[in-house]
Design a binder for these strands. Structure first.
Lengths: 238, 238
DNA sequence: AACGGCCACTCGTCCGCACAAGTGGCTGAG
DNA sequence: CTCAGCCACTTGTGCGGACGAGTGGCCGTT
């Protein structure tokens, strides 16, 4: 009796309709079969069909009009296809070539502010250079409070192959919940000029990573060369 | 028989629970009354209670665990509190002081590319300076294809009091659907230096506005001084 | 031709019921 | 004391039926 796990029926109904939309069988603007037709065609109860259609409507696949029918809108746009440089920075693995510096330093003012600690509190700093092909594509500097770093390998000068996020998750069971980031345009610092090989303006990203309780786990400063780096975003207008 | 319109029951149930969460009666982490309890308490069917709870879960107010109960998470975060400079640019009204220039020009290469027309096609250009207090906070340049501008006031040198978006909606029934934008860091152009009164690096925003069919209605280039301007964003990490 | 009412069809909401499946505590056998 | 099994409770899913309300076409009256 190795009963395979079957997904719930309403999910099957959703998938069936999604596939017909993706395949073009139901084109945008088309009217879907009525609920009663779908009931007959798919051999399920109306409750099930309605729940599937309502969920699809909430996700933006279709539009439902009282008294007229349900109409295809198309695959919903994720709306969240924005590039998240600060997130990738914590997820990318480090390599001996990319890792520039690991040190215990006293927190500069803006870092202390981000971390919510007193100025000049000792913190761990890690700096690396991300590359795309041969060109340096970002200088990423991470500051970690000692309480967070203790017991992990963050304070060791060896590269973290699995990336900061996975490492903190594995070793200290810390979960990233959300990230706040601020983007500005600025001149690169001296170090960044050296590492990037250019003194053109950079996108400066300041970010803090929070756990589910809102505690700041670490702060980050990224320098992205204005070109070729571009942050792209697509969003709906009401 | 002036039957007032009553919202559907499941919405009333949702509101009741939301209010109890907002008021603190149900604190984050608390277990909600079970479905059967809510059925008795509110005098509705379980279908109704379940639909309300499922919707609340989808919106992030609560979390449901099979076999254990439903638990309060709190008011969901909008997650979309990102500043959208290109959107506000099309919605802000123009004034005689802010409007710098209106002209018919031949499209520069990058504009032609954004609009999807041949280089040097004639287009309408409008440029204005946004201010916050006394300080200029952005230089906004909009390019509009002639087909779009014809019949509207976009090609006239008078300020559009109601903003570009409302004007196009009212006069030509054009609907904005979505905007794509790319952010880079760059040096300001000569004109921008004059208008901004500073030659520090700027955030350069290139954006295109699309109608529901995907057609490009207009293109935009914004120059935001690196300081005090900052684009802020908060986002969930899976 | 114009209008109004009727009617078939659509989705919106709600109910009661049923059974499956996950959780956790109690209890009795060992 | 320990542990397996039972049981009460939870949510998950599904069905069929019922009524309300919006839409649009048909058709007869005017």
């Amino acid at each position: 009796m190795s009963m395979d796990f079957a997904p719930p029926k309403y999910a099957q109904v959703m998938r069936a309709i999604q596939e017909r939309i993706e395949s073009g069988e139901y084109a945008p603007g088309d009217m879907l079969p009525s609920e009663t037709q779908l009931v007959r065609e798919l051999g399920v109860g109306r409750t099930t069909v309605v729940r599937a259609l309502q969920t699809l409507a909430m996700q933006g696949w279709i539009e439902r009009e009282h008294g007229r029918g349900s109409f295809v809108k198309g695959r919903p746009e994720s709306g969240a296809d924005r590039v998240r440089p600060s997130l990738t920075a914590t997820e990318q693995g480090e390599s001996p070539e990319s890792l520039v510096e690991v040190a215990r330093v006293s927190a500069p003012r803006f870092v202390a502010k981000l971390l919510g600690v007193a100025e000049r509190t000792p913190v761990i700093m890690r700096r690396r250079v991300a590359r795309e092909g041969d060109l340096p594509s970002a200088v990423e500097t991470v500051w970690v409070p000692l309480e967070i770093a203790v017991g992990s390998d963050l304070d060791k000068p060896e590269p973290l192959r699995s990336g900061i996020r996975r490492h903190l998750q594995a070793v200290k069971h810390l979960r990233f919940d959300h990230i706040t980031e601020r983007v500005t345009a600025r001149k690169p610092t001296k170090e960044e000029v050296e590492l990037l090989g250019s003194s053109n303006p950079v996108l400066g990203v300041l970010a803090t990573v929070h756990d589910p309780a809102g505690t700041v786990l670490l702060a980050m400063s990224l320098a992205l060369p204005g070109t070729p780096h571009e942050l792209e975003d697509v969003y709906k207008v009401s």
